[in-house]
Design a protein around this nucleic acid. Structure first.
Length: 566
DNA sequence: GCCGTTTTCGGCCCGACTGTTTTCAGTCG
């Protein structure tokens, strides 16, 4: 898939046009196109071949021809030309916080510098000081921006950030009426760049003061009467917005985004003769129409409330208008966990301990799925061990009448696509997860064949963590998901949505593709200890972001139905 | 550069904070 590659080019074009001072709407068109390509579930090359590029939102005649040109020739003339016009280092200066296109261009025009090191030198030697528009504060801010730029890791995992946000909310609840986190965190994106907190308060000064006196704050980046930004550990930025109670719903809607979703909402307001901002929905006479609750705003715009996980301008507004929003799977729908490890392989607790933990969570069934023999590093089970493992599970199953305990395995898909246990052995099990744990660097065709072959085995019910990605650490291996999902639908093999927040694999985008292609999923935790069981909401949220409904989630069904599927 | 139940041309979301400015431009979300 070259979707991300082309999206990246469009974003770079937007950066370059911005530096050139091009029409802001033209720049926005490139960014919107890039966003939509990133979220596209189909292969852009296939779409180009079919000649239906213009059906993609935000792609018109011009961008379609640019995409086609790039796919055909590997080049985009306009992009190459632009790169010649704008000095190459300039686009990188814009990545520095507080340095935007105007500042970067001005500095370049004055001093002809192109690198961040040169800019730092310029600031430190005070050469920049005194140039038009550059006084002491501005120079200091640039230096601070460079510092932040160098230190920031940029992305934070959802599972790391959400607990921090919850802590802050809990603290602020003592100093405000209502508190919520918003932004990409509320939309449950797999990685976020910052934490947005919203508070409503009758005494905003006190709320703001309480926020700014949190002990964990490293630095205050900005502070006003209603808005403040601070940095805490690991250079995580936290933005607080304090608003009056009557504006709560409007502010929450605005603060949740996404930006693209908000633009669409505001356009809808305009179309209906109103105006939407973070204070409320207003009629032509500036009279307050709605704003106390999010539902009020959606309602006055003729829409049902749209769950935050869907607010990405990926068709949710159209679906809301037409009354066909998906009936999203919920955490409470999940009846059992079908991917768990124990001390038999690389887990931290015994089978019985994990079963007890699952019972406490109210699950109706679990599958114990330890690793198979090839995976030596994880203590994979020999054939003989697997039989003893199965016996122990079946004995426990009789001991606990309130939970069905399935004997399973997470069997390795070997480099040639065969499985790590014989069919005879697999046939003795209740539930088989098959996963790739080696040979990640194989080419696309080989990897795709491997997984397809595994799905053709009648014992395999689900492919575990189908892309193998580790967020921030390891890219997905190169699979052709058109092929994989076609075969998954045909063989009625499920694809796993692994809830471990380092994985979230399938991703939201691939979940959406699975939905479109009629593939069923299983949302599992891949637990290696008790705490991992708590990750389920991340997997559910990822499925929700992919518009997945309860009916498509096999472990939202009773165990009999689960076992007879296929 | 995209797009159309007002439109194939003329619109395109909206506001807070900062710094350097006497009224606003730049940046950010």
């Amino acid at each position: 898939m070259r979707n991300l590659e082309i999206a990246g080019i469009f974003n770079q074009i937007a950066d370059l046009l911005e530096i050139q001072g091009a029409n802001p709407f033209r720049i926005r068109a490139y960014r919107r196109a890039a966003d939509n390509l990133e979220n596209l579930t189909d292969n852009i090359e296939v779409i180009a071949r079919q000649g239906t590029l213009r059906a993609i939102p935000g792609i018109g005649e011009d961008l379609a021809s640019k995409i086609a040109e790039y796919i055909d020739s590997g080049k985009m003339e306009f992009f190459d030309q632009l790169k010649k016009e704008v000095p190459p280092g300039l686009a990188r200066l814009v990545d520095i916080p507080s340095v935007g296109p105007k500042t970067a261009k001005q500095i370049y025009d004055l001093f002809h510098i192109q690198t961040i090191d040169e800019l730092e030198e310029l600031c430190k030697t005070e050469k920049l000081l005194g140039a038009p528009g550059f006084k002491k504060k501005t120079v200091e801010n640039i230096l601070r921006g460079i510092d932040i730029y160098r230190r920031r890791k940029g992305i934070f995992l959802l599972g790391r950030t959400l607990p921090i946000a919850n802590q802050i909310c809990k603290y602020l609840e003592l100093h405000a009426e209502r508190v919520s986190y918003g932004g990409s965190l509320r939309r449950m994106k797999e990685v976020v760049h910052d934490i947005d907190i919203l508070a409503s308060s009758g005494n905003p000064e006190a709320t703001m003061k309480a926020f700014l006196s949190m002990p964990s704050i490293g630095e205050v980046l900005a502070q006003g009467s209603t808005k403040a930004s601070v940095r805490v550990q690991d250079d995580l930025q936290i933005d607080l917005r304090v608003i009056e109670p009557k504006n709560w719903g409007a502010a929450l809607q605005y603060f949740t985004g996404s930006k693209a979703h908000n633009i669409r909402m505001r356009e809808r307001a305009i179309k209906l003769g109103m105006k939407l901002n973070e204070y409320g929905l207003f009629d032509a006479g500036e009279k307050f129409v709605a704003g106390l609750e999010e539902e009020d705003i959606f309602g006055k715009l003729g829409l049902p409330w749209i769950p935050p996980v869907l607010r990405e301008d990926q068709g949710e507004i159209e679906a809301a208008i037409e009354g066909r929003l998906p009936n999203l799977v919920k955490v409470s729908d999940i009846q059992g966990d079908l991917h768990m490890h124990t001390t038999w392989s690389d887990g931290a607790y015994s089978i019985e301990e994990m079963v007890e933990a699952a019972r406490k969570r109210g699950y109706k069934y679990v599958a114990i799925t330890d690793h198979s023999k090839s995976l030596g590093v994880a203590g994979g089970l020999s054939d003989a061990d697997l039989i003893r493992h199965t016996d122990e599970i079946h004995a426990l199953d009789s001991k606990y009448p309130d939970i069905r305990i399935l004997a399973g395995t997470e069997v390795d898909i070997r480099q040639d696509g065969t499985l790590d246990y014989s069919d005879e052995l697999l046939g003795k099990l209740d539930f088989v997860v098959a996963s790739v744990h080696s040979g990640f660097k194989q080419d696309r065709a080989t990897l795709t064949n491997r997984v397809v072959r595994a799905m053709q085995n009648p014992h395999v019910r689900v492919i575990g963590h189908p892309t193998g990605r580790l967020l921030g650490d390891r890219d997905a291996y190169d699979l052709d998901f058109d092929e994989v999902m076609k075969e998954a639908a045909r063989t009625r093999t499920c694809l796993e949505v692994n809830s471990n927040f380092h994985r979230l694999d399938l991703s939201d985008v691939l979940c959406r593709k699975a939905r479109d292609m009629g593939v069923h999923v299983i949302i599992s935790t891949d637990s290696h200890n008790y705490d991992d069981l708590l990750n389920l909401p991340y997997g559910v949220a990822t499925a929700q972001r992919g518009w997945i409904e309860k009916e498509r989630v096999l472990n939202a069904r009773p165990v009999e139905e689960l076992l007879s599927f296929k």
